[in-house]
Computed example of a mutant assay.
Amino acid sequence: MSDIATALNGASFDGLVQVEELRAQGMITLRGDFSDSGLVKTITDLAEVALPGQRGAVMDGTRGLLWMSPDELLLLCTYAEAPFLLGKLEAALAGYHALAVNVSDARACFTLQGAATREVLAKLAPVDMSPESFGAGQVRRTRLAQVAAAFWLTGEEGAQIVCFRSVGEYMFNLLKTAAAPGSDVGFL
Rank of each mutant, 00 (worst) to 15 (best):
A47L: 07
T154G: 14
F34T: 07
M171N: 09
A178G: 11
S133R: 07
M59Q: 07
S133M: 08
A150H: 00
K88N: 10
A57V: 03
L46C: 05
D71S: 09
A11P: 04
A82F: 06
L66A: 01
I43N: 11
G158I: 00
Q54K: 12
F34N: 13
L16K: 09
L124K: 12
M171E: 10
L188R: 14
D33R: 07
K41V: 09
L153H: 01
Q160G: 07
S183M: 13
L174P: 12
L65D: 01
S166L: 08
G186I: 05
L39Q: 09
A11G: 05
M27G: 00
L188I: 13
V17P: 00
G182A: 12
Q160S: 06
N102A: 10
A108K: 00
T62S: 07
P181V: 12
A11N: 03
D36L: 03
A91I: 13
A11H: 04
V103Q: 13
M27F: 02
A125M: 08
G135C: 05
L175G: 05
P70Q: 12
A108S: 12
G26H: 02
Q18Y: 07
A180F: 15
A92Y: 15
V127Y: 03
L73P: 06
S12N: 01
L153Q: 04
T6N: 10
G182E: 13
L16Y: 14
N173I: 04
L144W: 08
K176W: 05
Q54W: 02
T111G: 01
R143H: 11
G158W: 00
A180H: 13
A108R: 03
G114D: 03
K88D: 14
R140L: 10
A122P: 12
L93D: 02
A179S: 15
A50P: 02
V58H: 09
L144P: 06
M27D: 05
E157R: 11
F172R: 03
V162H: 04
G114R: 03
L93N: 08
S37M: 12
